[in-house]
C-alpha cells in the first residue's frame, strides 16, 4: 500500500541564529530505522520538523529530502505524506475512534462508507473491533497508541517520523508499543526516523544511530 521507496537525506544542516544544531546526510531503506539521539534541547526534533515541513522560520535549514524520486522539500507539508507519531497519541478529541482513523484515509477514497469500512478494518487489525463509536478519551493508554498508529498508517505515508513516541508509556507498555510500531511499519515498508533520548529505543530500532548535541 505504500510507495516502498527509500528516504534520502542530502547534506541537511539546520541552524539557529548561526549556530549549527544538526548536520546529517544518509539514506533510510524501507522498513529500517534511523535513530537520532540527543539530550532534550539539542534540537533533534527540528530535524523532524524540517522533513515534515513545519520548521519554525527562526531556524534556517539547508539540504534536500527525497523519497525515491520525489523531492519532499519542494512540496508543502500536506503533500509530503510524512506521517508522524508524537509522545502523546493526540487522538482528535471531538471525533469518535473510527472517525479519527477515517479522517486520515487519503482523499482519493471519496465514498464515506468506504472510508468508514477502511477505518473499521484498521481497528479490527489491532484488536479494537467494536471500539469504533467510542469516545477516544475512554480508551486506555495502550489502546490510544494503537489507534494513533493505525491513523497514521491508513493515510498511506511515504515515511514515518517518530518523535519520542514511547517516552510517556510505562515500562511494560513501552516494549509492546515499540514492537508494534516497528513491526507494522516494516510490513508497510516505511523508512523511519526515530528521535529519542532513550538508549533502549535505539537498541530496539536496530539501525544506525546519529548523535546530536552530545558534549
Amino acid at each position: 500500500m505504500a510507495d516502498r521507496s527509500a528516504l534520502i537525506l542530502e547534506d541537511i544542516s539546520i541552524r539557529l541564529h548561526g549556530r549549527r544544531l544538526i548536520a546529517l546526510a544518509g539514506r533510510v531503506e524501507p522498513g529500517t530505522v534511523l535513530t537520532v539521539m540527543g539530550p532534550s534541547g539539542s534540537g533533534k526534533s527540528t530535524l523532524l520538523a524540517f522533513i515534515g515541513g513545519f520548521l519554525d522560520p527562526v531556524f534556517s535549514a539547508q539540504g534536500r529530502v527525497s523519497s525515491g524520486a520525489v523531492v519532499l522539500t519542494d512540496l508543502p507539508a500536506e503533500e509530503r505524506r510524512a506521517g508522524i507519531l508524537f509522545q502523546d497519541p493526540l487522538l482528535f478529541p471531538h471525533l469518535s475512534v473510527a472517525d479519527n482513523i477515517a479522517i486520515a484515509v487519503p482523499g482519493a477514497v471519496r465514498s464515506p462508507r468506504q472510508r468508514r469500512q477502511m477505518a473499521m478494518a484498521a481497528l479490527e487489525r489491532v484488536g479494537l473491533a467494536g471500539f469504533g463509536k467510542r469516545d477516544p478519551e475512554t480508551l486506555s493508554g495502550g489502546q490510544k497508541a494503537r489507534v494513533a498508529l493505525q491513523r497514521v498508517l491508513v493515510s498511506e505515508p511515504r515515511l514515518l517520523l517518530l518523535d519520542e513516541p514511547f517516552s510517556k508509556l510505562d515500562a511494560t507498555l513501552r516494549d509492546q508499543v515499540r514492537e508494534m510500531v516497528f513491526a507494522e511499519a516494516r510490513t508497510a515498508g516505511l523508512p523511519m526516523i526515530l528521535v529519542t533520548h532513550d538508549a533502549a529505543d535505539a537498541v530496539a530500532a536496530g539501525g544506525p544511530v546519529h548523535n546530536v548535541g552530545a558534549e
Binding site: G52, A77, E79, R81, L90, A104, P106, R151, P157, L161
Partner: peptide, 19 residues
C-alpha cells in the same frame, strides 16, 4: 492550541483548509 495537532493533520495529508 497544541500545534502538534496541526502538524499531525498535515502529516496525514490534510490540506491546511481541511485541517
Amino acid at each position: 492550541f497544541d500545534r502538534r495537532f496541526d502538524t499531525l493533520a498535515a502529516g496525514l495529508g490534510m490540506s491546511r483548509q481541511r485541517a
